[in-house]
Design a protein around this nucleic acid. Structure first.
Lengths: 128, 128
DNA sequence: TTTTTAATTTATACTTAGTCTAAAACTAGT
DNA sequence: ACTAGTTTTAGACTAAGTATAAATTAAAAA
């Protein structure tokens, strides 16, 4: 594992993700950088997000929306999305390992990762 | 529930999805239609895929790739994607309901759907 | 059967998210 | 300071999908 090289830009972007508690998209990151008076090239933000993801400092979430979201919580966990308001919450409940083992056996795959997206309606949308 | 109106185009597209056993993307559908000598407007294919999805005849799969895939198997099941060759297989193992109940309780959400994408390496990629 | 209305398809322009490229600007090591 | 390697920048480009307005088809009414 190589040394992680956190340039000014990468650090600033990493901080945005860490401060955020709403799983921002690349577009969100660009906007928040601008609010802090920092404006980096379009491609730099995407490159940095990929670099941070590859380094394991953040996680890329593909939740079935058009844009990827990013999360600084790298511990194994899943997400639940509200189909009404778009809000994303963390799901810490661990996936039953027997279930995963059964899948590995059934399919012959070696399982590496599971991205689970649960869709539902959040409390505040359910009670108007 | 309204009556389902299967036009010529929608029927042809539905058939492509039914015949396929590889979860084709919209692009794949357009190509296969062309091979059959059928060429519909770009937007028609997208509209039809959405119509068929909304009617419950097919399912849209968002597997974290750039393009959605479509599946004529509408029974509840999940998918496993090979990170090497991109192949997609069905996972019929049912999700443990206690796990889902726990999540509903923990998060306060009313759970509607779960799209689970398991990533791994398929048998033929594992043994070269 | 003609007329009217509604739904669908078509062609094309547009949007969004993200990649690619080549030049310029840093950063390290000598 | 000089060179090599890495990053950033600006801007062109791509892929997937949406929006729109006109043309076509289908359905309903008269």
């Amino acid at each position: 594992m190589n040394k992680i090289n956190l340039t000014t830009q990468r650090k600033a972007i990493f901080e945005i993700i860490q401060e955020a508690h709403d799983h921002p998209t690349a577009g969100d990151v660009i906007e928040r950088l601008r609010l802090k008076g920092k404006q980096y090239a379009y491609g730099t933000v995407y490159n940095s997000l990929r670099y941070l993801t590859d380094s394991g400092l953040i996680r890329e979430l593909k939740l079935g929306e058009t844009a990827s979201r990013y999360d600084a919580r790298t511990e194994d966990h899943q997400h639940i999305v509200c189909t009404q308001c778009g809000r994303v919450d963390e799901v810490m409940a661990e996936l039953p390992s027997d279930w995963l083992n059964q899948i590995a056996q059934d399919t012959g795959y070696t399982v590496h990762e599971t991205q689970i997206v649960i869709e539902g309606v959040c409390k505040s949308c359910a009670t108007p």
